[in-house]
Nucleic acid binder design. Structure first.
Lengths: 354, 354
DNA sequence: CTGTTAGCGCATTCAG
DNA sequence: CTGAATGCGCTAACAG
């Protein structure tokens, strides 16, 4: 019923092996037979059976991309860039396909998807976004990545810190990390506020127990310390990376300290949520409170006032991950590259009016 | 080297068939042997070989999702919802994986990805967003979808109109369409402006030759006609679905007619670009010009002024597509459902001040 | 309920 | 440069 290699071979009056060679293009074939085969393929509308060839060749052309939430532009931009890069690297037989998996930030789902991708014998796996800080999960993840890597799957961590090496073995050579300088970016952001005279700065941080949250908080605290501002735990609240959390966080932060003059948010969506909360309470940004975001997603420039934020090279990171995965780019020395995080000062922050 | 079914079978002292049955869970197996097998799987850390089982079973657990641009939240939201729904339908052996493909709106790439998915023997394919209106491509697409469908791949069109039936055959029964009421939404939107007294309304439309663009323009024109406003071709410009196009479109529209009192945009991003252009020229929204978007992406509520727009049930559409694909939802009667498009009046539109 | 027997469709040896 | 033979790892009848 469905046409196979053998059918094509018969029609082109060659052996199946020859057809296979023509299609893979990785072996010399006489020009005449070659075109004869190609014509037969056309006429029969033959389409290779992917699973069969993956089985025989012991490798597939699937690349896994793990994200927290596809609907979040942060991940959409990264995943889109990775995928774009895959299609740019049209290999011999065809090109690689991106399998996108949303983990929702759950370490269990992360592991489960990795198993699913392992089952598919994925050519590569790209893990994006923050990782769980739970030591047990970190261990399980390291083990799983080592296994994947051992099976020939390339692994790229994109926008997350290097995976802690397992006690026993060295991290596999096929493991590359593209980290964001979250700490540095956060530090520069808070330093900017401190320089503007802010001393009571609320922090609407991301979910607890995630590397990105930890890094950004560390940068924030370092800047506070550098500015001689005492650590005030009650000025930090944790929440999800979304608008609603930002709204709630702002309300809660003001409840705890009505004298706040600024709020740094976990990301742009959270910042906009915070702005909305302030607006609803009759507070103006930045006259009454400064608000800052993180990531510089496209919409943050269109908010009013435009959001001061930290720009992360999302697209570049994804594209690089894609090139790493397709072998078109050499891994950075040591397998680790840290990507710049650039402070973008816009309208939502200004000097503190006490 | 890599552990196979046979290894597990040997360790559990059963036949390979039994192991297979335990793992697929679609056949009765004694509880004792079952747990014995499961233990062996654990101990050996066995992971099924996907390609092998796909080959033998003649079906894979991959679901293709075609989008224009993953970085655009419009598609991120839909794709995310589809994928989420796939993971919710944990089948016996595991769950389905989403293969996301960005076509960039190119009909050629669309066709090429469909072939790639056909090669993977995908269980289903979801095509999202607008389609090309080119008759030749429409024909090619219809043929390709028929072939996929004939091979047992379910096909869902999500957010695009029904594919024109091929002259010869009826559309396959496994083809379901979830269309957005773009025309109705656009009509209500423009009618809203007309009701506010606007008569010189510019239109920053989407790319020419795409179904979504055509539908929204048709709605727009219908509302104009209903309001007794003459068709003015120079008041419509075409561009991409992004912010930059919106900026350019606004500039061009004002150049052609400086007396415009409103602009309806192809989508929210275009609308925000238009707003930025107006702002740069010292025009206020909505006092000097009203501006309206389309889609109601999350950020459009945070713009200032908040965007009047048409809400499309993106998440719902994606989720439904996902359920259709996993067979958890019955196709609508006739294989076609049209999803509501709801007018959302916010701050960016107001009465016309001539 | 379980084991045996055949392929699934293709990529690779190895000969020629 | 081409063909014949072998097996990738698993599922699906078919018996028992």
């Amino acid at each position: 019923m469905t046409v196979t290699l053998a059918d094509v071979a018969a029609r082109a009056r060659v052996s199946a092996a020859t057809v296979s060679r023509v299609l893979s293009g990785n072996y010399p074939v006489a020009e005449r037979t070659r075109s004869r085969v190609l014509r037969a393929v056309e006429e029969l509308e033959y389409v290779v059976n992917g699973p069969a060839s993956a089985l025989a060749a012991a490798r597939s052309d699937l690349v896994g991309i793990l994200v927290n939430d596809l609907a979040d532009p942060f991940f959409g931009i990264i995943a889109g860039a990775v995928q774009e890069e895959l299609s740019g690297a049209a290999g011999p037989g065809g090109e690689q396909l991106a399998v996108v998996c949303s983990t929702g930030g759950s370490p269990e789902r992360e592991l489960r998807y990795l198993t699913l991708l392992q089952r598919q014998r994925a050519a590569a796996v790209v893990l994006t976004g923050s990782a769980s800080e739970d030591p047990e999960h970190a261990r399980a993840l390291t083990a799983k990545l080592a296994r994947l890597s051992g099976a020939g799957t390339r692994v790229v961590l994109c926008g997350r810190p290097a995976q802690p090496a397992s006690p026993a073995a060295e991290p596999p050579a096929t493991l590359t990390t593209l980290a964001f300088d979250n700490r540095g970016g956060a530090q520069r952001l808070t330093a900017h506020l401190v320089a503007l005279g802010h001393r009571r700065i609320g922090c609407a941080a991301g979910p607890a127990g995630r590397t990105t949250t930890g890094e950004r908080l560390a940068g924030h605290r370092a800047a506070l310390a550098a500015g001689g501002i005492a650590d005030a735990p009650h000025r930090t609240v944790h929440g999800a990376y979304d608008r609603a959390s930002g709204y709630d966080a702002a309300v809660e932060l003001l409840r705890r300290d009505a004298g706040l003059t600024a709020i740094v948010a976990a990301n742009d969506a959270v910042a906009l949520g915070a702005c909305a909360a302030l607006r609803d309470r009759g507070l103006r940004v930045p006259e009454d409170l400064s608000v800052a975001g993180f990531d510089d997603l496209p919409f943050s420039a269109d908010a009013t006032p435009a959001l001061t934020t930290v720009r992360l090279p999302l697209r570049e990171a994804g594209a690089r991950a894609g090139r790493l995965v397709t072998g078109r780019e050499e891994p950075p020395p040591g397998g680790l590259a840290t990507l710049r995080a650039e402070l973008l000062v816009r309208g939502s922050t200004s000097v503190a009016y006490p």
